[in-house]
């Protein structure tokens, strides 16, 4: 069954025709070609598909696209304006080797952004809690955590 929805993606309002079976991640990836949102499990367990829905992180593999009608979505693509000016969390990941294969990274970045929005000065434990919904198979999380610590610092200094 097809359904037409109105959704704001990265600040831009769009009308998209979706199949009701389609999850938000697929709509972003396939209809809107925003392929930075990745699918690692499809069942809500890995966080690779994390996006912001109305300002909060959710796993977009487990949200129906049709249910995003009237909502606002932010993806990793919406965080940076150009290749040379990424979001401070992304810059920190780049500088501190907070990634390897990069498959988990967009989701990880969004979780970190959410964390730092709520808690600009998190402890190591709070950071680990904040990204517990994002599996990474490459990094062992060490440099992810140090990247987020660095981002917190730079965001505070920038603010």
């Amino acid at each position: 069954m097809k359904k037409s929805i109105e959704v704001t993606v990265n600040g831009k309002s769009q009308s998209v025709e979706v199949d009701t079976r389609m999850v938000l991640a697929d709509m972003l990836r396939e209809n809107l070609r925003l392929t930075g949102t990745h699918i690692g499990c499809g069942t809500g367990s890995c966080g690779a598909c994390t996006v912001m829905l109305d300002g909060r992180t959710v796993k977009s593999c487990s949200v129906l696209a049709a249910d995003a009608d009237g909502r606002s979505v932010q993806t990793v693509e919406g965080l940076s304006t150009s290749a040379v000016s990424l979001h401070p969390v992304q810059e920190a990941m780049v500088e501190n080797q907070g990634l390897q294969c990069g498959y988990c990274t967009p989701g990880m970045v969004l979780s970190a952004v959410e964390l730092l929005n709520k808690n600009p000065d998190p402890t190591e434990d709070e950071i680990r809690h904040g990204i517990a919904g994002n599996l990474c198979r490459c990094t062992g999380y060490h440099f992810v955590v140090t990247s987020i610590q660095a981002a917190a610092k730079s965001m505070k200094e920038g603010a």
Binding site: T20, V23, G42, T43, G44, S45, C61, S62, V63, L64, A66, D67, D69, G70
Partner: peptide, 27 residues
């Protein structure tokens, strides 16, 4: 009924439930 979908969506994806109709309560 669909609320947060954090149980229903994985179950539907895995084919463990096959809803004929979904009524979302999210709005």
């Amino acid at each position: 009924l669909l609320s947060g979908g954090m149980s229903l969506m994985p179950m539907t994806t895995l084919g463990l439930v096959q809803p004929g109709m979904i009524i979302s309560l999210n709005h």
